[in-house]
Nucleic acid binder design. Sequence first.
RNA 1: GCCCUCAUCGUCUAGAGGCCUAGGACGCUGCCCUUUCAAGGCAGAGAUCAGGGGUUCGAAUCCCCUUGAGGGCGCCA
Length: 488
Amino acid sequence: MSNIRVRFAPSPTGNLHIGSARTALFNWLFARRMKGVFILRIEDTDELRSTDESTRAIFSALRWLGLDWDEGPVPEGGELGAYGPYFQGKRAGMGVYRKYSDQLMAQGMAYRCYCTPAELDEQRKRAQLEKRPPKYEGTCRHLTEAQCRDLEAQGRKPVIRFRMPDEGVTAWNDLIRGEVKFENKLLYDFIMVKASGYPTYNFACVIDDHLMEMSHIIRGDDHISNTPLQLLVYKALGWTPPEIAHLSMIHGPDGTKLSKRHGATDVQAYEAEGYLPAVIRNYLALLGWSTPDSQQLFTGPDLIEKFDIAGCQKNPAMFDPVKFKWMNGEYIRKLTPDELLDMAAPFLKKAGVGQNADRETLKKIVALEQEKYKLLGEIPSLVDFFFKDEAEFDPRAVEKVFKKPEAKKVLADMRERYLKLADFNDVSLEKEARDYAASASLKAGQVFHPLRVAVSGRTEGPTLFKMIEYLGRDAVSKRLERAAALCG
RNA sequence: GCCCUCAUCGUCUAGAGGCCUAGGACGCUGCCCUUUCAAGGCAGAGAUCAGGGGUUCGAAUCCCCUUGAGGGCGCCA
């Protein structure tokens, strides 16, 4: 058992975003690879935006992705692990953060600030105009006790700010980027505790990461500038910070941080389109990480076995929907017919396709076009013609195939032959068609193409004679008869 | 404006001074297979390693500058 402890700490303010999912994945991979512990902590200190609904959405998305956590809240109720609670809201209620903000106040490393949000906003705007950094100016930095009492008498509620050192440098050795350093004088006195008494992210995060004994913090690159602030809190409290690694961001096609603007960006949306969880894991892992031989597909446990922080990329990666989709097709092709049917079932059900068919029949039909599927969501529309009373004819197919002079006769003759055929299976069906073509001095294609359109309504589809076999003699006969009427 | 980060085919990347006439994958093109569409097989186009200076016998790899891109500067996380 190693002492590796890492966490995924989302704020429940929406569905699980693909970028967050990647952060979760990298932490999970690292934990599994190192035989460590993967912790889920809910950072619900934003009282306005956090919702239970989002929390549930995050739980289910993580579960669906297969990213199981060893410690943290359990969706069914209760918690796993000895470091709870794992909701920051609950921890705040227990006074967990209060203890440390009091300590920092007593040490003189934190102070009360009575500036209102409106005043701060004003200051920021002014600074922007004057081309100065829009950071807190330290208005309340040196308030006396008496001044504090006065302001409070006026009804002002204070926040607690961390007192940044005026000089010195804060640096760390980032596992992915190497040494990163910030001059302390450029940092600002950030708010640790809001007027409501709730802690802010930069404060709560440090307290919890320490109390939960995190060994590594693996998070997005957008947190780099928060890191010196947090490191200074560790220092003020006399704590040793964990190892830190900053992952590069995922960008959309326009080169900016992937967001809603770029279309589907939450895990649930990809689930609905029919992406496999294993594909999301595989593709996301490749966005910013690679093996020395640049392996693409990790279908077994090798994703965990080969994962290594050292293989993480520093530069941001663009999310490529085309490659993502290719990979999904690649995984679908490797499924057994039973697995494929199980995964397709919810999509078939939703589309109302094949719901009266027995499992074996449905399985055969779904597997017929397995090598063609890229998304589970496209399966219903590709197999629906098997289950309809009659084929829906694509006008282009009718134009292209049924207008051929021989089409009408071919369909009528083949209907006769198939009605009399002893064994209605793909081998005999094909032999019969080929024999007919030879006897009528036609090329195989001149027989096959009209047949295909007649039974399916389309020019493209599964292998012809399997398709006819699965459709069954009665359905085929009816479809050939109706199609013949459309010819000419 | 200030701070931070990053920089190899269109995209994801391999590459840690000579194995690089820069490798793989997606996508693209052509051919083969074939009853269609796919899948598969084969072949190919595609990167003067952002630009400029150094260091070195030798640089995609080390150093500096420039440029470009991204992130941050919230009582959001």
